[in-house]
Design a protein around this nucleic acid. Structure first.
Lengths: 206, 206
DNA sequence: CATCGAGGTTAGCGCTCGTTAACCTGATGG
DNA sequence: CCATCAGGTTAACGAGCGCTAACCTCGATG
């Protein structure tokens, strides 16, 4: 079962550029893209306002890189999981997809928040790219879900997938990391709920 | 079963003030609070920019009234449903709560979007009020859910409720009213998924 | 050791935005 | 028939924003 996978765990310090992206993601998620000034982003990494322009051509570019990065990582992660687990069976693939999405939702809460909140602030070309990546991610899920629950029509499966994303992406609303009963228990709970939601979606689909 | 309930269905035209609130909600949901100018809101109702100040003391006040109104209506609606259905049994109450939330999510999509997106743009006092209303709404659900699924601990029930809100509030992401298989079918699907999610949350809660 | 580029700094420009001021108008009621 | 007032209008102000210009500093390099 267990296969050795190269995990890119880094030990070196994050670059200034990465610091900026991380803090910008946090601030954008907290107060919205238009609600955060470049001076604030700079201050969050210890430099001041216009210093950011040594690393990014503009504020828009930071948001674009964040959103494209999120969508891309979600999609490539899902494709990798699909390849790794498709010999085992559809159920295992679906569980792996759910697990991957939960990991992302729990570990990168600000990005999850940005992901469906600030998409309209992008240039047309970037927005189209992100939308395309998101669409491919959804379609990948839809196919796997329909494999496990053949009773679902395609539109129903698509709606169900979007709704389960809503369920899994609710982590930012789950109290601030103190009231939670631990990461593992939360991940388990979300996983069970997602499976239960899909299962009930497939029941009595007249 | 069926009890006659006074539904405040209005036949008169909406006041200018209501027009403004409706259009402001739509615009805020589409482009974010900071992304919409007062001139745009005015143009959406046929008057120009500063004319809005005959109806509201400022842009903030529109957002505040929208968010307080949402939270309040959700809470009072839930309390009414609790009273109406608590003789019938816990299951019926939970189904009624789910139905009410789905109605709201399907009929007032922009408000659903605003509701968890722009809360931080409020004055402290308004934000506290909205948070208090939201908390009471959540606690009401938690009690009902624990009545139906006694296996759930209180923290688990609270997490489950937040997650189901995420599921039900996913309606804005469900294609633009053309790809949906009809309102009734969508409501049914969401309802089944919510019940299934709660049911699986309660299973194997070790 | 001189040079040079990466990565900062502060000053300030131009634009947009929320808001106010001053004025207009048409329906209403004594 | 005139006063009033609700509900508009346009002009303009002041603050804040993203971004550029100009300058500084310091470690690496031939």
């Amino acid at each position: 079962m267990s296969r050795i996978v190269f995990m890119a765990t880094r030990t070196d310090a994050p670059t200034r550029r990465e610091q900026i992206l991380k803090e910008a993601a946090r601030l954008f998620a907290e107060r919205g893209f238009h609600g955060v000034g470049v001076d604030e982003i700079g201050a969050a990494v210890g430099i001041s306002g216009p210093g950011l322009y040594r690393h990014f051509p503009g504020k828009d570019a930071m948001l674009a890189e964040l959103l494209v990065g999120i969508s891309g990582r979600l999609l490539t992660g899902a494709r990798r999981r699909l390849q790794e687990a498709d010999e085992v069976g559809g159920e295992a693939v679906l569980d792996s997809l759910i697990e991957g999405h939960i990991d992302f939702a729990l570990d990168d809460r600000p990005l999850i928040t940005l992901h469906d909140r600030e998409l309209d602030r992008l240039r047309d070309s970037d927005r189209k790219l992100v939308r395309q990546l998101q669409r491919q991610y959804v379609e990948l899920w839809v196919e796997v879900v329909r494999g496990v629950y053949p009773a679902l029509t395609e539109p129903a499966a698509r709606s169900a997938v979007h709704s389960v994303f809503g369920l899994l992406n609710s982590t930012p609303h789950l109290g601030r990391a103190g009231s939670l009963p631990g990461r593992g228990a939360t991940a388990d709970l979300l996983h069970r709920m997602a499976r239960g939601a899909f299962g009930s979606a497939a029941e009595a689909e007249a």
